[in-house]
Amino acid sequence: MSECNVDDAASNEAWVPFKDRPEWRDLKPIPQDDGPDPVVQIAYSEQFREVYDYFRAIIAADEKSERALSLTKEAAELNPANYSVWNYRRNILQELNKDLKEELKYISQVIEDNPKNYQVWHHRRVIVEWLEDVTDELKFTEKILKEDAKNYHAWQHRQWCIQQFSLWDQELDYVDRLLKEDLRNNSAWNQRHFIIKNTTGYTDEIIKKELKYSQDFIRKAPNNESAWNYMKGVLQERKLFDFPGVLEFCHELYSKQIRSPFLIACMIDCYEEMLELGKPKKEETLQKATQLCNELAEEHDTLRREYWQYIARSLASKYGADVSGDS
């Protein structure tokens, strides 16, 4: 939530002090009022102080002019997280009927310099909304995601554009490309879920396809949690058991001596579901499930011992006569 590096303060060499700007002479700057006994007081640079003194004056005068617009640019550059500046800039853009395509170009540069900032992405979104033009958006977010494939703001903007302007068609191909580059990119898996849920939905046919898709990735890297989570997400509204392939798939990996905690957890989930549905051989199933919980707790996932012991106890108390999940 706090994305700013307090170690590198930007400095701008070409900055002109306001006393050397005749066009500002008519406006009286308003200093910040921190009260008589200031706290968390930032030692502002001269530039920062002056720019914001004038910014306050502009707001007080409700001035929406070219010079005010360029002042917001200066202020935003000094602190791109100042939402008041961006908000006021939007008011000016509207009032002066500015070319929004130009604004989009400008904000692209700002986002590239500050890709993890809430305000700059929100500004972009509002501009796109006003323009009702989404031509550059997919390309732009791809550019950002190329630098950081998990940038949350970029994904958020992308999802909004896709939803708002119905850009669903090519998205699965993009996700596929990203997963081929990095099968651990959880944001890409999430995007896959988002796209399918909002287009075809998880029909029987799609489920079969997606099971195979995720299982192929799991075979390549059984310790990759993202693919396991996606596979379970595919079956979320259904029962794991409606698709008997799942438990068999797990058994196949288990018999190859794979002991990924995510594999064992998935087997436990299958058994739990069998118990819930009242399938035959209840005691045997419960025993298998609690046995696997203990394997995780004692050997393959000892970090989560408390959790797995709890799962074992709660399965035993729910489905067994004897409450001894805790060994």
């Binding site: 030692a43 997280a81 939402y83």
Partner: peptide, 24 residues
């Protein structure tokens, strides 16, 4: 120290000063 004064590198948190109070 931060509760009193912060260096100019904190200008990027100039819109989070109540946060600075709370965090501290």
């Amino acid at each position: 120290k931060g509760l009193q004064t912060l260096s100019s590198s904190y200008e990027c948190l100039d819109s989070s000063r109540p946060w600075l109070c709370y965090w501290i």
